[in-house]
Nucleic acid binder design. Structure first.
Lengths: 213, 213
DNA sequence: TGTACATCAGTGAACGCGCGTTCACTGATGTAC
DNA sequence: TGTACATCAGTGAACGCGCGTTCACTGATGTAC
């Protein structure tokens, strides 16, 4: 009983986040009204303001949620890849392939990146949200760089690249690829870009002359 | 006399576009009000609606302007590079270097991509604007692919890649790189990504073992 | 050259709508003694 | 176990502001005859 109520209560807030995310990715933050969110959730406007002090707080919660979900998803993916290969490079390459496959399994074009969506938005809540996004990006940079350093111990780079930049390239390519795939309505574009990134990483550590993996 | 008047008249419309672009890149389209645009330009609201039937028409004009400017800029850049080298690969690599240098010469982080800004916006004008952006992206894909095909005649690819995807990678990397550089407030990030892309293109056509260019 | 009309680049006032936000209140459930 | 109070998850009504849009009008310049 108690747990059911708590769940139902928790799920209202959760429902607001779900509905808001979908609408914001489709139309942008400013163009998504609280009115339409509460109509879809089946709640009054005051109910919304019970959960979020103001609209910009919704943006913050949405970005935090997106970051958390993304982290879990990618962690699982690369962990699964590493279980298949104990070589750090091969594990990474398999992880990228799994990522590309997951992206092409999506029914439609990628729903979009809430970070990018909010990056092109109002200054009011920008400070908080930008800081949140920034620390997430830096965390990914660190994670990838450490992996590259590990790989480099076994495979001295054939092409001298800055590992931070190579790490950022992944984030940038995904964000940019989402935009391109949405504009061109081509859902294969994003996984193709990830596979191209994979080709580059392989060339960096294995060179272009080595046997294909 | 006549021309002065025409210039002054033309410059009002131009001023609206300039002011609007800056504001939209900073805050997003929906968060930029007509009121603030006309205040900055020094015009009445009716004056705005004389030039643009409605607000979504402003978005369309802005995207068209951005596409045109970008085309001129990049054309000049690669033409200048080709004048220095008649080898298609070396010309392309020099062009990418010039592009990266131009990006790092900007005083601040990149102002942003109006196409991406508008991609995360309202459905109302999406159709027109998305089509406009899409055809611009396809034009760039074609331009880059033809260049790669030309290069491939002299330098058979060492890494088998899809030239369309390799062309898209450039557009995606720039759009994504702009987002990253704005969030991380790091103006060097974007040119670094362009140089990394250059490394990849070189590896594709020259391999990783060849002498540096 | 003078006059009549047309066009260009706006002005000024008014509009209704819907947005985000506030605030006093409520009814169901949980907790202390 | 019963009662009193606290908390949680909202409700309902009202608010003022500013947004995009409309429309009748205007004054300066251009064009025809």
């Amino acid at each position: 009983m108690t747990s059911t109520v708590l769940n139902r209560a928790g799920s209202k807030r959760e429902r607001i986040l779900e509905v808001a995310e979908e609408a914001i990715l489709a139309k942008g933050f400013a163009a998504t009204s609280i009115e339409e969110i509460i109509t879809a959730v089946g709640i009054t406007k005051s109910g919304f303001f019970y959960h979020f002090p103001d609209k910009s707080d919704l943006a913050k919660a949405l970005v935090q949620r997106y970051i958390d979900q993304e982290e879990v998803l990618l962690d699982e993916m690369f962990q699964r890849a590493d279980e298949l290969h104990d070589d750090p490079l091969h594990g990474f390459l398999v992880g990228l392939k799994l990522l590309a496959e997951m992206m092409s399994d999506l029914p439609n074009t990628h729903p979009g990146c809430i970070i990018a969506s909010v990056c092109y938005q109002d200054q009011l809540f920008n400070r908080d949200v930008v800081e949140l996004s920034g620390s997430a990006l830096l965390a990914w940079r660190k994670r990838f760089r450490e992996r590259f350093e590990l790989i480099a111990q076994h495979y001295p780079p054939k092409i001298p690249v800055d590992f931070d930049a190579l790490a950022d390239m992944m984030s940038g390519l995904v964000d940019g690829g989402i935009i391109l795939s949405r504009i061109l309505k081509d859902k294969d574009l994003l996984p193709k870009q990830v596979m191209l990134y994979r080709d580059f990483v392989r060339a960096v550590f294995l060179g272009s002359g080595e046997a294909r993996l």
